[in-house]
Amino acid sequence: MEILLIRHGESEADILNVHEGRADFPLTAKGRNQVHLMAARVKNEFPPEIIWASTLQRVSETASVLAEKVGCPIHFEEELMEYNNGILAGLSFKEAKKYPNPKYLHERIEGGESHIEFRMRIESIFSKILSSAQYNRIAIVAHGGVINCLLRSFFHMPVTKDFYFKNGDTGISYIEITEQDKVVHFLNSIAHLSK
């Protein structure tokens, strides 16, 4: 199965300099343009047969444009929502400094989820998606944190691994799982934005 991992376009939170996470901000005009460029590239180079997507606005809008361009169905999945950052969602970075960061993987930010809970949520939905093996190529449109967890799962990295995969606006990662191998075609490609 070929898997495209696609991050949403620029959102209003990016220009407001606030914590996003579960805060539900729409795309900006720039973000919508990024999405159209990404969708044209995906249609021409590696169109998916189905799209799995988070239900938060910035992703649902990104996935909807892609689905319309490619002509494939979308399955919206709440389990693909970004890390639940609880009380920090929507707060400015300055305001958020009042709240201590969890020191341990099992600790939660007030009203949120722990890093272990987040990773296990993404492991579970990834397993569910992979079990839908009737597709040759799928796209998962999601958030930077979710894509990080998906890649950590793909590479069998432990939950304690402190390693970050950069994901730009509408960045595309292209991986493949066969019966014999796991293949990384590329990670975080934003070549479509330079056109």
Score class of each variant (00 low, 15 high):
I3T: 09
L4T: 04
R7G: 03
H8I: 02
E10N: 00
E10H: 02
D14H: 14
D14R: 02
I15Q: 12
V18I: 15
V18G: 01
V18L: 03
R22W: 12
A23V: 03
P26Q: 09
T28P: 11
K30H: 07
G31L: 01
Q34K: 04
H36D: 06
H36C: 07
L37P: 01
M38I: 05
A40D: 05
A40I: 00
A40S: 04
V42L: 14
V42C: 10
N44A: 15
E45W: 10
E45P: 11
F46Y: 13
I51K: 07
I51A: 10
S54F: 13
T55W: 14
T55Q: 13
S60K: 15
E61S: 12
S64E: 15
S64V: 05
V65N: 08
L66D: 08
L66N: 05
E68N: 14
K69C: 13
V70Y: 13
P73G: 02
I74L: 01
H75D: 05
H75E: 06
E78F: 09
E78H: 08
L80A: 11
L80Q: 08
M81L: 12
M81N: 15
Y83W: 15
N84P: 07
N85Q: 12
G86V: 08
I87V: 15
L88W: 15
L88T: 12
L88M: 12
A89H: 12
G90A: 12
L91I: 03
E95W: 07
E95D: 14
K97T: 11
Y104E: 15
E107S: 07
R108V: 12
I109A: 00
I109P: 01
G112E: 08
E113L: 10
E113Y: 06
E113P: 07
F118P: 02
F118D: 08
R121C: 12
I125D: 01
I125H: 04
S127L: 07
K128P: 00
K128I: 07
K128W: 00
L130D: 00
S132K: 09
S132F: 03
Q134A: 05
Y135V: 07
N136M: 03
R137M: 07
I138V: 15
I140G: 06
A142R: 11
H143K: 13
G144H: 10
G144E: 13
I147G: 06
I147V: 11
N148H: 10
C149F: 10
L151R: 08
F154L: 10
F154Y: 13
H156E: 13
H156L: 10
T160K: 14
K161T: 15
K161N: 13
F163Q: 07
F163T: 09
Y164R: 12
F165E: 05
F165T: 08
F165L: 05
K166I: 05
N167G: 03
G168I: 01
G168C: 01
D169H: 09
G171M: 06
I172P: 04
I172A: 06
I175F: 00
I175N: 00
E176Q: 08
I177T: 06
I177G: 02
T178V: 04
E179G: 06
Q180C: 00
Q180H: 04
K182N: 05
L187H: 04
L187Y: 02
N188T: 02
S189L: 03
S189T: 03
I190P: 02
S194Q: 11
S194R: 12
S194Y: 13
S194V: 07
